[in-house]
Design a protein around this nucleic acid. Structure first.
Ligand code: MN
Ligand code: MN
Ligand code: MN
Ligand code: MN
Lengths: 229, 229
DNA sequence: AACTATTTTTTGGCTTGCCTAAAAAATAGT
DNA sequence: ACTATTTTTTAGGCAAGCCAAAAAATAGTT
């Protein structure tokens, strides 16, 4: 029941489940819970159990009743490729078509399911083999390898330290639009003027001299690269 | 049963049926036959009847049992939009990603189903608002209007007349690859040296001076623009 | 008009993917 | 150790799409 004769292409639904499981297990050792997947996919838990059985039969996940689920090697490979396609398309939409970084996610959710190895390769080349997407997330290469980068959350910087914004941990359009309003776009250099530990907020100075107060929510969702002062 | 409260998005399957019906009725007055649609879609006739009932319920086609089917105004609008997207993506694949014109159809078949009005508009602009796709087929504008062009089949040219290749009636990759081999690409100017009416073949002279014999099958599937001599 | 061949629809059934409601299992609290 | 709560699975059902086989309609022929 586990071995596959050949590799039947996955449906869009199956691909979306794989990506959901990937996201949930990406930064943790523990398997993904049915409820968490249901939440991520906006479906009923019963639908998730249904699908988990199918994915397990296809050898894409490790699944034991009541024990949660994790990706198999093959499942991880497929999920990584989906992430690659998603992020490459996001680069295309922003760099080539001029979309705002807050507008591209839903379209990339569709484009990531386009099936054509040659298309991905040519797109990658057309875009100049980008290593990070418009949100600063790394784009795995054709072998599934992610670029490494020295980055920390803004909230980890101490007073006087400088950092360059290289990514966002939160992708909600409202958050991205808020950052746009403050000109806190990728590549922006900022210096921590003062930290207010009682509520985790901080005042930072921007390149134009402006000083702004950033809430805890903001400082915990901005990735920066520490700059030597 | 005909009036729609709102416009529920179509499934990919429904879109493909609409496009098949569009293709079959595009150049004829008569409605499309169930068998013809089944042939076009590579499905069983029973599946077609199933879908026709659904499309009729949604007001996208005019359907009467045993009488064939044609697109409603709304169906035509949607089908035209699909054609627009398909051809724009083909331009993207050839012009921007460097695909051969014989490789793009299947990928465009997938891309045409991506749903985002803004994407289509931006893509159109990015491509320079092309009016014809890589096969010489006209790309309808946002209002569904096709560009008109003075074009005839190569087989209609008489001896001594010159024409510029502007399109192909047949899209089979094998035909396109054959044309590539002979350098009969869009924009190529050719002169009819001699016609052989007994088998409808003709000898033509190419810009490089080469003279080639073209079979009936070829001359009936190449669109040219007649050139003043 | 009657018969035949072809086309189309109907019927019944399959898979995928989703749902709700209910049962069962795991977990947390006392 | 027992109970209450949460999590997960099971059961039963539904819509979309697909199919093969049977039945009905149409078209062609004599
Ligand atoms: Mn995204
Ligand atoms: Mn992203
Ligand atoms: Mn095409
Ligand atoms: Mn084309």
């Amino acid at each position: 029941m586990k071995k596959q004769t050949s590799a039947p292409r996955l449906s869009i639904a199956e691909e979306n489940y794989l990506k959901a499981i990937y996201k949930l297990t990406e930064h943790s050792e523990r398997p993904a819970a049915t409820t968490a997947i249901a939440e991520q996919m906006q479906t009923a838990a019963a639908s998730v159990t249904d699908m988990l059985k199918r994915l397990a039969d296809k050898g894409l996940i490790h699944y034991e009743r009541y024990k949660g689920v994790s990706l198999s090697d093959e499942g991880l490979r497929l999920a990584t490729h989906l992430v690659r396609k998603h992020r490459l398309w996001e680069v295309f939409l922003v760099d080539k078509l001029g979309f705002g970084w807050d507008k591209v996610h839903d379209i990339a959710e569709q484009l990531e399911h386009i099936r054509s190895p040659e298309l991905v390769e040519r797109l990658d080349e057309f875009l100049g083999r980008p290593r990070f997407d418009p949100h600063g997330d790394p784009i795995p290469d054709a072998e599934g390898q992610f670029a490494e980068r020295q980055q920390i959350l803004l909230c980890k910087l101490t007073e006087g330290q400088q950092g360059v914004i290289v990514g966002v941990a939160e992708h909600a359009p409202s958050f991205l639009q808020f950052l746009d309003k403050l000109s806190l776009v990728l590549g922006t250099c900022l210096e921590v003027v003062e930290r207010f530990d009682f509520d985790d907020s901080m005042k930072v100075r921007l390149p134009d001299g402006r000083e702004v107060l950033l809430s805890s929510k903001v400082t915990h969702n901005l990735f920066v690269q520490k700059q030597p002062v």
